[in-house]
């Protein structure tokens, strides 16, 4: 078998071929699948962004944050209300992608703060209890928004909606730039986490939290941090996505958004860096193809496909690929 010192190459401190690969894949797939208009590009990058965001808490730390969409909603609402009611924020976001990111970071920081506070408490729960608690959080937030927002925004009283007037809207190329920057940042973050002490600690929590704590991993702090970072990016994606859509309503809290994220991660491979990317690409393609060829029943078919993946390929694409070797180099090392 040879010495392990030879086969386990030092991947720390190496350049980041994975990222170059990631970007190439994105661009290539975008062309192959004919992702043409700016709107579809925004959706495409949005899918990958939210999947990679959830991957931080669900893939690495193993906590199924089923109510993750709560942060989409919080980010989207705060962003929309901010630019609607605070003129200088509207001016700021109008300068382009960077402006959107800056205002978006304001909105998503509040979401991250919520995650830090709630997470410190709710992350004491494990497994399904945690998942259910996050669903509870999502619904609590949604109903609070439905009850309160009409009074904050009385001009559009019904449906708790914030439809952005034309002077608040930005060019689609600006929202795409912002989403692309967010996507690349969250993918880089995934990569850096996976390669770090923090990331190894998170994975050990996923594998056996009690053993990890006894081995010295500060589990409570790590989990909360992962949840917060995950919420930050989810909220940022939500803010940009709903800005692109021209407004936000309570649908932003729909659990279906979490399903999108989970399905992509499961297809791609939980807890891997490329998983959300590959899963996002496949999901987008599946989503698009099914929508075009089987309108109406597209989501029914999608549900069945997901069920089959969970039953027969629970490790996802990356999980399957990493078992193979190419010229003595394990794909595991490249893909993760």
């Amino acid at each position: 078998m040879g010495s392990a010192k030879g086969t386990v190459k030092s991947y720390i401190g190496k350049p980041t071929p994975i990222l170059i690969l990631a970007l190439t894949i994105t661009v290539v797939f975008a062309r192959i699948f004919n992702v043409a208009t700016l709107d579809t590009l925004v959706i495409f990058t949005y899918f990958i962004t939210i999947a990679a965001s959830l991957n931080i808490i669900m893939g690495f730390a193993g906590y199924v944050s089923f109510g993750q969409c709560v942060f989409l909603g919080i980010g989207a609402y705060i962003y929309a209300l901010s630019i609607y009611y605070v003129p200088w924020m509207n001016t700021l976001q109008k300068i382009g992608g960077e402006g959107i990111i800056i205002v978006g970071l304001f909105a998503s920081s509040i979401a991250a703060l919520v995650a830090a506070v709630v997470g410190a408490v709710v992350l004491r729960l494990r497994g399904a209890f945690f998942a259910i608690a996050t669903i509870g959080l999502d619904f609590a937030a949604m109903y609070i928004v439905m009850g309160i927002v009409p009074f904050i925004n009385p001009e559009q009283f019904y449906g708790a909606q914030v439809i952005l007037p034309s002077h608040c809207l930005v060019d689609k190329s600006a929202t795409f730039t912002a989403m692309l920057i967010t996507m690349i940042t969250v993918l880089v973050t995934n990569y850096l986490i996976k390669r770090s002490k923090f990331g190894m600690g998170l994975v050990s929590i996923r594998e056996d939290e009690d053993a990890a704590e006894v081995m010295g991993v500060p589990t409570a702090r790590y989990k909360t941090l992962a949840y917060t970072v995950s919420a930050l990016f989810t909220a940022l994606a939500g803010a940009i996505f709903y800005l692109n859509g021209g407004g936000v309503y309570s649908e932003a809290f729909d659990l279906a958004h979490t399903v999108d994220m989970i399905v992509m991660i499961v297809i791609g491979g939980l807890g891997t860096v490329l998983g959300p990317l590959i899963g996002g690409v496949i999901y987008y393609w599946l989503y698009d193809t099914l929508l075009i060829h089987y309108p109406g029943v597209n989501l029914i078919i999608l549900g069945i496909i997901v069920a089959l993946i969970i039953l027969f390929a629970p490790e996802g694409v990356v999980g399957i690929l990493r078992k193979y070797e190419v010229r003595g180099v394990r794909l595991r090392e490249i893909l993760e």
């Binding site: 399903v259 989501l299 029914i300 999608l302 549900g303 997901v306 069920a307």
Partner: peptide
């Protein structure tokens, strides 16, 4: 949980 969610989507 995931498989039941797939069922709910379908």
């Amino acid at each position: 949980l995931l498989i039941m969610f797939a069922l709910s989507v379908a």
